[in-house]
Amino acid sequence: MNEEYRLATALAELAEAEIPGAAPVEALVRRGRRTRQARTVSVAGAATATLVAGALVTASVSGALGASSAGHRPGVPAQPSFHYRLTAWGPGRVIHSSVIDGVYDPVNQRASITVTNEPGTGFPGPWEEHLAAGRCFTKDLDSAGPWKQWTLSECGLPPTVVPGVELSASSGTLLARLNAAGSTRYQGRTGTGAAAIDTWTFQVNVPNVWNQPVPVTGTVTATASTGLVTEITTLEHRTATVPSVPKGDTLRDSGWDWKLSDYGTPVVATVPSDEPPASPAPSATVPPTVSPIASPTVSPTIRPTVSPAVPLESATPR
């Protein structure tokens, strides 16, 4: 193995052994504000002392203090929640487009999403999923049926970018997870100033329903100034990964496009009042089996590992 790779692995292992606590954001802001006020006083005092009389010094100092403290509002959550919109794509009638729209709070493990599948494909109509109190609930929106309770793995919450890689709004966290599962490569920066965007590519092998490794490649883009992820695209290379299917015949690549935004959006996800007493058994027709963000794969509606009895690929028109 490459010596530098070993060093990188050993460093990562050593670093990951440290368990960071929550970022002391409010304390840092308070310290930063005090430091800035002190600097403002110092600079204003020095400048005015050389130019004007003592009375003016007092005025400029109080003015600077007022200006520097104006507009500060603490209360930003330690890790922001975020809105995401996930679009699935793939060829054919069955492997079709799905859209997941929702908000996710990684700190409090709350999520509220709506899943919409393209009509006429045999997949269920829109449904809503809530992650709250360590449990997951779904509700069929067409029939306005009762809330049903599921395990987290059945619902696919919290969301995963690829199997085993939980979605994170932090590019650093997300890339570390992707590196642990596969590899990433920095592709550079585009734009300048606040509009600057950093881009990485990644590759991860994930097992399919036949337990064969399927390569998933993709890109991660993040705002350079904040490190917050703005978009993730994944491409699952499915061609000729199934022994029983001729190469290139019925299997097609498919992919996902995540767009993240609205950092700090409050997430309202409560335990439904009409919650059933017991968890229903999963079936082929209920939403969780085809949930677009069902772990552990990239493609929720076409997830062969979730519903292996449904030969989705073979149903693809030739």
Partner: peptide
Amino acid sequence: MRENADGQSEYSAFVSVNWSRYLRV
């Protein structure tokens, strides 16, 4: 995310999402 004049929200978001990474560095 709402921003105030001096970008405090942006700073807070930057710190919160990058804290772990930079602490390890």
